[in-house]
Write a protein that binds this DNA or RNA. Sequence first.
DNA 1: GTTCCTGCAAAGGTTTTGCACCATA
DNA 2: TATGGTGCAAAACCTTTGCAGGAAC
Lengths: 162, 162
Amino acid sequence: MSEVDQRAPRRREADPGWLQAAYLTLSEAGYRAGGARSAVIDELAAQDGCVTAEELAGRLMAKDRRVSTASVYRALAVLTELGLLHKVSLGEGRTRFELVSAGGEHHHHLVCDRCGRTVTFEDDDLEGAIRKLSERMPYEIDAHEVTLHGTCSACSAGGVSA
Amino acid sequence: MSEVDQRAPRRREADPGWLQAAYLTLSEAGYRAGGARSAVIDELAAQDGCVTAEELAGRLMAKDRRVSTASVYRALAVLTELGLLHKVSLGEGRTRFELVSAGGEHHHHLVCDRCGRTVTFEDDDLEGAIRKLSERMPYEIDAHEVTLHGTCSACSAGGVSA
DNA sequence: GTTCCTGCAAAGGTTTTGCACCATA
DNA sequence: TATGGTGCAAAACCTTTGCAGGAAC
């Protein structure tokens, strides 16, 4: 199909800092860097990180670096547990994973509900509002996620109803 | 298991306005009010609406008002399509549905990543930031979703690691 | 009476798990 | 070499769909 992987234009083509942090954190936690796990880490670092397990496996296969689905999920689970990845739910029925960069900066998502195209954005006012809000909450907040839903310009122009 | 349905204390015990709007909208759109669909609508109106299909079916079964899973999903799909419900993704691997109240006010979610307990909140500054932001976006924004992740006081006190 | 709704069962898609084999440290 | 990682296949989930019978209008 033609609608796979309509990611936004990449803001961060690669994140070598994350890559090194990932390997370091992993070994410090007593994990080994097996072939499948390393392949997943390398591929994640080479992308903006907002991918599904299936996309990741597909990209690796395209590079002749075949990794089983199970290993992709296992690698993603370990990285998430170590705080190197963050799960993102965009309401597509599957989970996306994105890099947690050392700097703490992050982005949010704008999804076209008609075609699924996704764009990322950042906004200081939004972050400020969330920061103030978090202080008043009864939970210790350590992450947040904002998703805007709408219709992209292509779909608006096309006029296809829903 | 004991960890099912740890919803937050309900802010809105019931929403008769939504109930009536639902039946009206449904009939205006040419839908009939069959037994299963009515049961789902009644149950949704009696709750805060932030439920999964499975929870809904379970609550109905507990009331001796058994509705098949397929019918629950079908009812939820129709109501969502008519704008009476809104899908919510809290990263649990399944979809939650919540009422879209006529007044247009809405809330967001605060999830405890350890136990799954969820609290809802509202914040004007947050809404303002999102409104301004939406105007600058390349998509026509018609909905948004904010999820805060953290650790609730019970889990913090318990000290159970992850 | 016609059309739509419902339940059952089967299928579809994503994610997890068991187990034997292989690679890393 | 010992332990942990990997692949395959099967299972577990959530959700959707086909179809025959029943209910609403």
